[in-house]
Design a protein around this nucleic acid. Structure first.
Lengths: 216, 216
DNA sequence: CGAACCCTTGATACGCTTCAACAAGAGTGG
DNA sequence: CCACTCTTGTTGAAGCGTATCAAGGGTTCG
């Protein structure tokens, strides 16, 4: 799957990616299946090749508290394995998903021989660091409406219309607001004429004003 | 400064650290001095060797909005330079500080020759990733009182008494609460008998109950 | 001494959550 | 086919948590 490796490690030479491909193991998981659990030792770097995986906490007595959703191809947990520690979150499949695991021991050996791979990995760590930094910034300084506006803009990625691929309560969870609040905010943005919502289809009617709302 | 390098890149061999030492440049900065600005290109990896540096946003019209404070030895921005992008926050000295910069170009060359260094760096990126993940988790799911309890426990690091080395408003900023709220929360914890506060000295009277409060 | 900080305390306002009720669609079994 | 249940999203009313505004006291420094 060269395309997926390219997405996971942009810029790395093809021969190095092939070497990695030999080390990796793949699992095809059904919706709801556990990818890993909090407290479980991290044996390698994990990525979603295809599908959608949720990161957060699963409580036995009740449903799960989602913190982030990752859609493939995307790295899942790049930190725990490097530190030889345990995962700090639960991860479970939201849709059917292809999950890749790169065991640390052979990976370390491979990196000794191919230093150019290390830079690609470093870049990915940096990307996640930057992403998380943005999230903390939003949580610290922006209210729910601003966070939603920012989320809509990011999610639309320039397009004026999009289909929400996940449950609205999952969107709310990622924004750290109650589902009821999300519903109300959507209605308010609709009344203001900034967006149009029809079920799971959202059209951005005034992206510039949305951007203004998110920044100011 | 071998001790400081050890703290920044634990586990790396001494000869490699010496090689890095030759590449690095140092600056001694006064309180209030800017380390870098938002939007400025990142030329290298930055670290605080000694002193205290604030990360956040500086507004020209008003004071700064602090998001995190870092006390040396600690890496400052490990992400931007790897991505060849600009810094996303402002950084300024809170106390007098020694700041170290490791320019990317020679660093890349050095990593090609010494792959063992790359792993040390990767570990540091992973540590920061894990730290930020913890912060977002707290911001998403814990109220102010719980965040404060968790902060006190982390800060005390096992000791039962400590001196707050920073202004209380800076502590409040890191917890994403108003200074007034921090003052009230401190008083409430004091009334509950969990801590004792005398100006800038805090004693943890009941760490176990604090831990319970932070987790439950 | 006043000026400039800082922290504290009180009163009030607002954002968001929680609880409860209801509507709409999907799946199930009689 | 309908009745039943389960899940999801929506809406309203009430309440909690935290911010904001305003005022006062304690330090430090010129």
């Amino acid at each position: 799957m060269p395309g997926q490796w390219q997405a996971l490690l942009a810029g790395a030479p093809g021969t190095a990616l092939q070497a990695l491909d030999l080390l990796a193991s793949r699992r095809r998981l059904q919706p709801g299946a556990t990818v890993f659990r909090r407290g479980q030792a991290a044996r390698g770097l994990l990525a979603v090749l295809d599908g959608q995986v949720g990161l957060g906490l699963v409580r036995e007595d009740q449903g799960q508290t989602l913190e982030r959703t990752l859609r493939g191809p995307q790295w899942l947990d790049l930190a725990s394995a490097w530190l030889d520690e345990v995962h700090q979150q639960d991860a479970w499949c939201i849709t059917e998903a292809d999950v890749l695991e790169l065991p640390m021991a052979p990976l370390r050996a491979c990196l000794q021989e191919r230093p150019e791979l290390a830079e690609g990995l470093m870049r990915q760590l940096a990307r996640q660091l930057r992403e998380l930094g943005g999230i903390t910034h939003e949580l610290m300084h922006m209210d729910a409406e601003k966070r939603l506006a920012a989320w809509l803009l990011r999610r639309a990625a320039g397009l004026s219309s999009m289909a929400l691929g996940e449950r609205k309560r999952d969107i709310a969870a990622q924004l750290a607001i109650a589902p009821e609040t999300l519903s109300r905010l959507m209605r308010q943005l609709k009344i203001k004429g900034l967006i149009d919502v029809q079920g799971y289809t959202v059209r951005l009617l005034a992206p510039d004003q949305l951007r203004l709302l998110a920044q100011g």
